[in-house]
Design a binder for these strands. Structure first.
Length: 193
DNA sequence: CAAGAGATCATCT
DNA sequence: GATGATCTCTTGA
C-alpha cells in the first residue's frame, strides 16, 4: 500500500524510522525502478543547525515549511542531488533524507544511469540513489502520494534499527550529536557503518 | 583498505 | 564571494 500524507505528518523521527524497510518506487518511461529503503536521516524543526531550515524560510527551504508528503530535492557540492520527504504539519520545517536503498527492481536501468557497474554501490548513498532513480531538481515540490515517485509499505516485519549520528554536518554544533540517522542493522546497502 | 584531493554550481551573505 | 545533508578516482601501504 502507498504511504500517504497522514503517514508523513507524523513526528519526523518516527517517519524516518518507519520508512526503513519500505520501498521507494520511481515510474519512468525507461522502466520502473524500486529500492528498499535501508538508511534515513531526520532534519527536525527551525533550530536544527544541520537543517537547511535553520536560517529561516528562504526560497530553497520554503518547501520544508509546507505540508507533508512532498519531495525536497536539492543539488549539493555542485554535483549530486539529495531526496527528502517533507514531514510534520504545515508551518513546521522538517524532512527525512533518504540516504540509501537496496536495488530491488529495474537494476539494469539503474546500472545504465550510474558510472560504476558494481551492483553493491548502485544506490548506497544519497547522491547515488538519485542518479540511479533519475531524480533531479525537477522533483522539488513533487507530490509523493502521486503516481511517479512514491513509497510503498509491503507490510514486512519491522527491521532491527540502529540509531546514530548524522553524516557530513560537523558544522552543526551541538546538533551534530543528535542520533537522528537510522539504518537497518547489518544491512550491506548502508552508506557507512 | 584508508586517506586525500578534486570536481562544480545553486544558494545565501 | 564562500560554501556545502557527496562521489569517484588516485595514491600508498
Amino acid at each position: 500500500m502507498k504511504l500517504l500524507r497522514t503517514f508523513y505528518e507524523q513526528a519526523t523521527v518516527a517517519v524516518a524510522r518507519q520508512l526503513l524497510g519500505t520501498y521507494l518506487v520511481r515510474v519512468h518511461s525507461q522502466g520502473i525502478t524500486v529500492g528498499k529503503i535501508v538508511e534515513t536521516e531526520a532534519y527536525v524543526g527551525p533550530d536544527d543547525k544541520a537543517s537547511h531550515a535553520s536560517r529561516g524560510r528562504t526560497p530553497r527551504s520554503a518547501i520544508m515549511f509546507g505540508p507533508a508528503g512532498y519531495a525536497y530535492v536539492y543539488l549539493i557540492y555542485g554535483f549530486h542531488h539529495c531526496l527528502n520527504v517533507v514531514t510534520e504539519p504545515e508551518g513546521y520545517p522538517a524532512a527525512v533524507l533518504i540516504r540509501a536503498v537496496e536495488p530491488v527492481e529495474g537494476v539494469e536501468v539503474m546500472r545504465a544511469r550510474r558510472r560504476t557497474p558494481g551492483a553493491r554501490s548502485l544506490t548506497n548513498g544519497p547522491g547515488k540513489l538519485c542518479q540511479a532513480f533519475a531524480i533531479d531538481r525537477s522533483f522539488n515540490g513533487a507530490d509523493m502520494s502521486g503516481d511517479v515517485l512514491f513509497v510503498e509499505d509491503r507490510r514486512e516485519p519491522p527491521p532491527d534499527i540502529v540509531a546514530t549520528t548524522r553524516v557530513g554536518i560537523d558544522f552543526a554544533g551541538p546538533w551534530k550529536d543528535k542520533p537522528w540517522r537510522f539504518y537497518i542493522r547489518g544491512h550491506a546497502g548502508v552508506s557507512k557503518r
